[in-house]
Nucleic acid binder design. Sequence first.
RNA 1: GGGCCUGUAGCUUAGUCAGGUAGAGCGCCGGGCUUUUAACCCGGUGGCCGGGGGUUCAAAUCCCUCCAGGCCCGCCA
Length: 525
Amino acid sequence: MHWADFTAEKLSKERGNRQVACSGITPSGEFHIGHIREILSAEMIHRACLDAGLDSRYIFIVDSMDPLRRVYPFLSEEYEKYIGCPLAFIPAPNSDGKPDPNGLSYAEHFLGPFLDALAEIGVFPEVIMNHETYSKSQFAEKIDSAIEQADEIREIIETISGRELDDDWFPYKPLGSDGSMDGVTVTGYEKPFVHWTDRHGKSGSADIRKAEGKLPWRIDWAARWGIHGITCEPAGKDHGAAGGSFDTGLPICKLLGSEPPSKMVYEWIQVKGAGPMSSSSGNTVGPIEALNLVPPEILRYLIAGSKMNRHIDFNTGSALFQMADEYERLVADPPNPDAEDLTKRQRVAAITQSGAMRLSQIKRGGDPLDSLAGVTFRHLAMLAQIKTSDDDVWNSLRNSGHLSGEPNSALQNRLERMRNWIGSIHFPEDARINIQKVIDENSRAQLSSEQLSFLEKLAVELRDSEWSDETIGNTIRMTSANSGVSGREAYIALYWAMLGRSHGPKASALIFEIGKNAAIELFSS
RNA sequence: GGGCCUGUAGCUUAGUCAGGUAGAGCGCCGGGCUUUUAACCCGGUGGCCGGGGGUUCAAAUCCCUCCAGGCCCGCCA
């Protein structure tokens, strides 16, 4: 069974009909591909719950109340003064990394493009800005409860995480006079006010019914489970470590009077750049960038097709061919769990694969066949490189029998992404078609004298040839017959001459794209 | 130091939770398509399931142990 369906079944038994799946991310900077797993793990479980007939919601909590922790490399020094301030209350950086007082908040700034990317992969969460949950007083009861039971919570955190808390530790962090929660000391509590003095010597009171402070992370997380009735929240492996925030969250959530979701941990996505630059610069791949290269259903399949506890190598190099082709193959020839002659294992595998395919669809319940491009990624990569216009690509596919009529949106989408990919540093070099200007020494060494004379003759014949795919093909055949080289040898010679390899895409189409003068120059060189 | 995960064919892996004769894709090899779209079709090669021990009629699967690799653990989501 697919992990999402398995989880849905488990949730149904444990928590009944009403389910709330949740993701949570701090918008401290650009979102990256790893966040896609956070989102999709929960969203796919949500979909599986719906498919199982459960009443399910999917919420995405944006940790907008979290403070800016440090001045990140993409920020200017001016952000120094905002350290410790909630991301919802400070200005977003402009293109120079300077605070832009007229723009969006820091949190919104980074969230917007991410939500756009999510829409492209068919994810439409209920977005909850955590600072609003604070300002709408929804945290108040939990905060009061946490303060009243501060000793118990301290005990839980110290015992389970093995961490020693300071003597002045308090389960609520008020904002000081400058809006920062750094350097603020709690001096007392009179419901609903937490009294404080800050590092500037000023004192004041934070109303727990407003966004004037927040719970520390470990308590915040535990509290929100209860506030939103969350039944499932897959967490990154960093939370999953023994004594981590998941482990302390479970008892704290109960202490605050709610039932926590059961622990669920997903592995991380690692970016192994195929391009030479990514290893040195170490830059991450953003979801928007990823979507420019990878068709959305295939990005979903990356997550759906991997078990939660396995790390994923996000590879925009040659592995992308493999992943895309695997998806294509599955859609074209779907596994049939009902087939008679399957062993138990094969049946389980078939069910799992069907689930992965179902969950990979952009639209829930969408027909996988609608996402069938009908061409392998590798083949499309070749055509995209030798055909400059999309119409020529479609024509070529019609000629080869891959396409009848007009391309569907999935195929158009694939080609668009493919062109982006080819234009990027991520496209694998060995798939790149580099047409030689002259026959290099290495290629020449591969060729017999007959083959070389064939090329010379071809150059002459082409001079008077009409410039069409078909005519060029005929000219090749005619010339090879006249030169006494076999068809096979002739083509091999052409590929060595054009590409420096023994194989390649259809030669006549390639010569057509090279153009008459360049081709003649090449073959007579 | 604490903990998690992984180790199955040359490569990527399914199957491990619910034990029942090791599956797939890629690659490779051979053949076909009346002489090449990196296409397509057919067939084939290939694995003491990391090592060892235990439980069982039966172990890739459960238990113990060892080896190897990856990762997480600063109130930091």
